[in-house]
Simulated scan of single mutants.
Amino acid sequence: MDEGPAAEQAPHRVKRVSMADVARLAGVSSQTVSRVSNGHAGVVPDTREQVLEAMRELGYRPNSAARALKRGEFRTIGVVLFTLSTTGNVRTLEAIASSAAEEGYAITLLPVAAPTHDEVRGAFTRLGELAVDAFIVIMEVHLLDAATVALPPGVQVAVADSNAGDRYSVVDTDQAGGAGTAVRHLLDLGHRTVWHLAGPEESFAAQRRADTWRAALTDAGRPVPPMIRGDWSADSGYRAGLRLAEEPGCTAVFAANDQMALGLLSALHEKGRAVPEEVSVVGFDDIPEAGSFLPPLTTVHQDFAEVGRRLVQGVLRQLRTESAEPGTTLVPTRLVERASTAPPPAPRQRSGKAV
């Protein structure tokens, strides 16, 4: 009997291969298949290979969700972050993924569309519905207000780049140490003072770098020039550079990140201010391209890989001990000296007097 086109288009349901199917084909018990599937030791190598061959032949895929429920863990770390547009976030995320993989964990990325409490609340609500054992937050602390964000119960937390050390386990670069090194480097070269191109006002990292810049100049008894605010982008650095190029007393600038320093260098070059002969520039981050700037950029190196590794180790330690102690772990920085810094230009002479 002809059943027509409808019968031809009926979906063909493929039967899911079970652990029992693998056991029958391999000639072993289901318990042995389970041990091989979960990576347990104690299975004879020949038997293990026999089971694996049966899995390959049947196309068997272990049910990871069922195993997770049985073990009480998902071996997955959630990562919440606001933006992937900054070098620091991207490199920290890369390090988190690599470190988690080394520990046998996957990551689930949950970006927040906008830096608002509503968006953050929604992100944490979604995290609570996902199969994650812990999560890492790469976000400013003002968005982690305990009064408005409900953290999923029983899920451990570690925070990157924040001043939330009294409430969470925090891992951060030594922002103050790096900024202080940058300012002292320029003062030690003989510059009378150092101008600062700061990051956005809502950023904790930008705040710490700006506060340290101001304190270093004050402690050295040097004048504190007006701070110029950028937004981490090269475009904002370029706009700041056009302004600073018109400041005759500006011989040294500390930029809060390398991207802004790049824009700054471009504007100074466009305005005929030679770097480092007339103006010295120091950045912060040591992005891979910093050595290829023109001139190569002196900058503060951040060890993003170490920050990511410590964040993963921190949440795993919390999982294993089932407790978390608030506090901040600082990862050291170091200054990388290149060709964008030098002593200030000698004062011009006019009628036998310095100008």
Rank of each mutant, 00 (worst) to 15 (best):
R61G: 07
T108I: 08
I138L: 10
H117K: 10
A113E: 02
A65I: 15
L109Y: 00
G128K: 12
E57Q: 11
F74Y: 12
L58A: 02
L110Q: 12
M139A: 08
H142R: 12
L144R: 01
L130N: 10
N63S: 12
G78P: 10
P115C: 04
V141T: 15
F135A: 01
A66Q: 13
L69D: 08
R61W: 14
A123K: 04
T87E: 10
G59M: 03
I77K: 03
P111W: 09
G122Q: 01
E57V: 09
S85K: 12
G78C: 05
T87F: 15
I107C: 12
R56E: 06
P62C: 09
G128Q: 07
R91H: 04
A106I: 03
V137Y: 03
A54Q: 01
E103R: 15
D145C: 09
I138W: 01
L143E: 08
A114S: 12
L81W: 05
E119C: 13
V90I: 11
R71Q: 15
E49S: 12
E119H: 11
V137C: 09
E129L: 14
R126E: 04
A106H: 14
A113L: 10
E102I: 00
F135T: 00
T83N: 07
L127V: 10
D145M: 05
L69F: 13
L84C: 07
P45M: 07
V44G: 07
G59R: 01
L110E: 14
L144A: 09
G59N: 06
P111E: 00
S99E: 08
L93N: 01
D145F: 03
L130V: 04
N89Y: 04
A106M: 13
P62H: 06
A95S: 04
V80E: 01
V80A: 11
T116C: 07
R126I: 06
D133H: 06
E57A: 11
G59P: 13
E53C: 10
S99A: 12
A68C: 08
L81H: 10
A134L: 05
I138S: 04
A95N: 02
R121Y: 00
E57M: 02
I77T: 01
D46N: 11
I107A: 00
T87V: 13
A131P: 11
L69A: 09
Q50S: 11
A123Y: 00
I136S: 05
S99C: 00
L109H: 07
R48C: 12
E57N: 04
V141L: 14
L52F: 06
S99W: 01
I107W: 03
S98H: 08
F124N: 07
I77P: 12
V51I: 07
T76I: 09
I138K: 02
R121W: 02
A97R: 11
D118Y: 02
R67M: 14
P115M: 00
A131Q: 14
F124D: 08
T47A: 08
R48Q: 14
E103V: 02
Y60V: 04
R56V: 09
E140N: 13
T83K: 00
T83Y: 04
S64Y: 15
I96P: 13
A54E: 08
I136G: 03
G88C: 05
E140P: 14
P115D: 06
V132L: 00
L58Q: 00
P115K: 02
R67W: 09
T87C: 09
R61T: 15
R48W: 01
A100P: 10
V90S: 11
A97C: 11
A101Y: 01
L52S: 10
A113Y: 06
